[in-house]
Amino acid sequence: SQLLVSEPAPLRAAPEPATPDSDLKTLLTLCDLLNRELLVMIGWAKHIPGFTGLSLVDQMALLQSGWMETLVLNVVWRSQGSADELQFAENLRLSESQCRAAGLHDLYTALRHLSSKYQQMGLNQEEVLTLKAMALANSDAENVEGAEAVQRFQDGLHEALQDYESSQRPSEPHRAGRLLMTLPLLRQTALRAVRCFSRLHTDGRVPMHKLFLEMLDAKI
């Protein structure tokens, strides 16, 4: 319930009106959107029950290792209503050919694979919000200072998921486990997303915001 309350309103893409449509414009618009989502995510993280109880260093460690998984869940959740597009925002939907043209084809296949998996499962909002928080709590960050505090943070979210599933879906006793069993694919998808944007950056194809680059840097 706390995650439902603290869920930020979805952001809209902000394409430059004066710039003619092009693959570069798609990338610029996408990178700007993702950077703003990242900013919002950092504020959102503080509302996850238990997060601010962690040390500042551990808060950074979890965000540095889990941020792309949380961004991926945002996109995948928004894309649930579509069979073949990626909906990064209400006003930014990309088809496979648009992704390919922008150098995002690998990202497209990875995100669509995860999106269709959650579509088959009938993922709902409560579940995706809990998974987003878990992506941070379970991000296997290195050099954690307060391992016990992080473990309690994880256990709290795991308990919330189990309580939710047992009360809302009593006829599906394996549901919570099945959701947890999607986390490895989420991790793999996020790593492919990191590689894709890192490649775009090293190729100099699109300027990226400092925060986005700092967080990309933390993942490599």
Binding site: I42, K46, Q64, L211
Partner: peptide, 15 residues
Amino acid sequence: QEKHKILHKLLQNGN
């Protein structure tokens, strides 16, 4: 080194 990061500032002064 971590202290100079944007993330550190954002977490510290609460957006």
